[in-house]
Design a protein around this nucleic acid. Structure first.
Lengths: 353, 353
DNA sequence: TTGAAAGCGCTAACAT
DNA sequence: ATGTTAGCGCTTTCAA
C-alpha cells in the first residue's frame, strides 16, 4: 500500500488545497474562501469544494495558514508540576474554556526548574503562540519573564506575584490564601487552641507568603500571645514533612493543632501523629490546606481550606481570551478567588494539658 | 514604547531572518546555515550572524521552518483524564524523554469524550505533528483511530487494546494488569481468603479486562470454588463506590477481602467498612490497585499493586522516538511492564466466620 | 463571483 | 564559502 510505503520512508504526501481545487475544478482562492468565511462563494462552488474536500480527506495545514494569518490558534500553558493534581485540575479547566473558544492548548512542564522554564518560554515564543498561561515555580525568574514580555503575546499569571514592567502588574488569577489561612487560624483560636503550627513550603512563593501573613494576622487580631504561632517551612516531600512533624510533635509544649498543606505534608503530619500515638482530633486538631482526596477520605475526615480549581483555570482562560480579543480596556486584569473552610471532623477544642 | 503599542494593536513586528541577514551584512542563506547545521560557514560569518541574532533578539519562526522541512518537532499526547494523577505522571515522564530528544510535547485532554477524542485527533493532524502518544478513553473509537492512521504520523498507544489495521497491532506500552491481579488474588487465597471482591471499573477497557482475567485465573489455578470471586464493576465516582461497597459488605456472606482500584473506589470501600464497624485488616483485608498516596498513608497502610508510571511514560516515548527515527525494523513494537505487590499492613488471614 | 499572483519566514538546491 | 532563488500550503489583495 502506498500509504505504508510513504510512511516508512517518512515521505507522506498530503492532499493540499491545490488538489482540492483541481478536483473541484476551481481555483485555490475559491477553495480557501469556500472552506473559510464562505463569503463571496456561489452555491455551486461551495458544494463542489465541500465534495472534493470530503472525497480527498483534506485537512488544511494549520502551520501554513498561520504563516499567513499571523495567528496560530494555540496558547501555551506553563506549569511547574503537572503531576500535582491541583495544577492538573486547573489546567484541565483552562483547557476546556480555551477549547470552547477554538484554541488549542499546549502544556509545558517545567518541573520547577528555572532553566527549563526559560527554555519552554523560548520554545513557545518560537512557535508563535497566541498567548500563554503561566504558573511559575518561583516568583523570580526575571530573564524568563522579560523574554515572555518581549514575545508580545498576552500572558496571564496563575497565583504568583511576578514583578511586572513599569509597575504595571501582569494580568493574573490569584487565590486569597491570606484570608483562607486567617479563617482557619481564627477558627482554631476560637476553639481554644493557642499553640498552632502552620506547615507549608517556602515563603519564596506567593501562596506561602500569603498564608503566613493570614496566619499571623489571626493571632494579632485575637490579641493573644503569638508565641504559640509556629510557622514551619517544609519542602514538599512526604518523608521530610514526616520527620519534621515528628520533631514538632515531640516537643514538650507541642502544638495542639496543625494546619498542613496539600497531600504530602498533610500525610506526613498524620503519619507522625499516628506514630506518636496521638489521636486526631482528640490530641491534635488538623486542618488541611487544599481539599484533596486524602483530606476528604481520611478517617476522621479532615477539615479543609478549599478553593475552586475549576474557577482558577476558567478565570485564567477568560482573562487571556479577553486580552486576545483586544478588549483589554474593559474588565479587570486581575481576579482574586475566595477560599472556604470546609468543616469536617478533625478539629475539636484542645484537651487541657 | 513601540513594543507596547504594537502589542495593544495586535500587530507585533517580529525580527525575521532577513533582518538578521541585513545587520550581519550577509545573505539569508548564510544566516540559515550559520544558525542551523553550521556547515559551510566561515568563522567570520558565524560570528557576525550570532552577534546580529543576539542583538536583535531573533527567534526563528518554527512554523515557517516546518513548512519547509516537513517536520514540526512536536508530538501530541492524547489523554482521557489529565486530572488523574496516574496519567499526569505518565505524561510527565514521556515529556521528559521527548524533551531530551528535542521534541515539544502537546497534551490534549479528551475528558473521556469520544467526540472530543476525534476532534483532537483532527486538530493534531492539521498541526502536522510528527507523532502521537494516545491513551484512549475506550478501546473502540474506530473512526478516530482510522483518522490517526491516515495522518501518517507514528502513533504509540498507552495501555489499551486498539484494533490495528490488517491484524498488525499498533505499537503500544502495556501494563501487565493480569499478572498483577493474579498475584494479588493468589496472595489473598494463600492467606486463606475464599470470598474476595474485585472492585474495578468496566471491562470496557483493557486494564479492567486484564484484571478480571487475572483474578479468575488465580481462583482457577488454586482449584477452589470460584463462587467467592466477586467481580464488582464500578463507575469511578467515590460515592457510588461507597454505596456499592456498603451493599457488598452487608451481605450475610460478605467478602473477607477486597481488591479496589485507585483512590476513589478504595476510599469508598474503606469508608463503607468503617461505617459498618469493620476493622481493617482484622475483619477485612484490603489490597489497592495502584500505589496512591491514600494507600501509602492510610492507617493501616494498604498493601498495593504498583507499576512504574515513569517507566510507562518513558517506554512510550522511547517507542515513538524509535518510530520517528525510522529504525522501526529493529526493536520491539510493544512493551509489557510488570506489576509488583507492595506488602503492607492491610492483609491478614480471615477470622473464622 | 472568480482567478491570478504576491508573499508569510524559512530551507535547500543551484550558481557563483 | 556565499548569494540567489524557488518553493512549502495557505490567505488575500487585485483584476477581471
Amino acid at each position: 500500500m502506498s500509504n505504508m510505503r510513504a510512511r516508512m520512508a517518512g515521505i507522506v504526501s498530503r492532499t493540499t488545497i491545490r488538489d482540492v481545487a483541481r478536483t473541484a475544478g476551481v481555483s485555490v482562492g475559491s477553495v480557501s474562501r469556500a472552506l473559510n468565511g464562505g463569503k463571496n462563494v456561489s452555491a455551486r462552488v461551495a458544494r463542489d469544494v465541500a465534495a472534493a474536500a470530503e472525497k480527498l480527506g483534506y485537512q488544511p495545514d494549520l502551520q501554513a495558514r498561520s504563516l499567513r494569518t499571523r495567528t496560530t490558534g494555540m496558547v501555551g500553558c506553563l506549569v511547574s508540576d503537572l503531576a500535582n493534581p491541583l495544577y492538573a485540575s486547573i489546567v484541565q479547566a483552562a483547557e476546556a474554556r480555551l477549547r470552547e473558544a477554538g484554541l488549542l492548548m499546549i502544556v509545558g512542564n517545567t518541573a520547577n526548574d528555572p532553566a527549563r522554564e526559560r527554555a519552554m518560554v523560548a520554545a513557545f515564543r518560537s512557535r508563535r503562540l497566541d498567548g500563554m498561561l503561566v504558573a511559575p515555580g518561583s516568583d523570580e525568574n526575571d530573564r524568563a519573564w522579560r523574554e515572555l514580555a518581549a514575545g508580545g503575546a498576552p500572558v496571564v499569571i496563575l497565583d504568583r506575584d511576578v514583578p511586572g514592567e513599569d509597575d504595571v502588574p501582569w494580568p493574573a488569577v490569584l487565590v486569597d490564601h491570606r484570608e483562607g489561612a486567617r479563617t482557619a487560624t481564627r477558627y482554631l483560636i476560637g476553639l481554644g487552641h493557642r499553640r498552632i503550627a502552620l506547615l507549608t513550603p517556602g515563603a519564596r512563593m506567593r501562596p506561602g507568603r500569603e498564608r503566613i501573613a493570614g496566619f499571623k494576622a489571626a493571632f494579632a487580631e485575637a490579641d493573644i500571645d503569638p508565641a504559640g504561632a509556629l510557622v514551619c517551612l517544609q519542602e514538599s516531600s512526604m518523608d521530610f514533612a514526616q520527620g519534621d512533624a515528628l520533631e514538632l510533635l515531640r516537643r514538650d509544649r507541642r502544638p495542639t493543632a496543625i494546619i498542613a498543606l496539600g497531600t504530602r505534608i498533610l500525610a506526613g503530619a498524620l503519619r507522625a501523629a499516628r506514630d506518636l500515638g496521638l489521636s486526631v482530633p482528640r490530641d491534635l486538631s488538623v486542618i488541611a490546606i487544599g481539599d484533596t482526596d486524602l483530606a476528604a477520605v481520611h478517617s476522621p475526615a479532615i477539615t479543609a481550606l478549599r478553593w475552586s480549581l475549576e474557577d482558577v483555570g476558567r478565570a485564567a482562560a477568560e482573562l487571556l481570551l479577553q486580552r486576545l480579543r483586544g478588549t483589554s480596556g474593559e474588565g479587570q486584569s486581575r481576579a482574586l478567588l475566595p477560599v472556604d473552610l470546609v468543616l469536617r471532623e478533625s478539629c475539636v477544642p484542645p484537651t487541657a494539658t
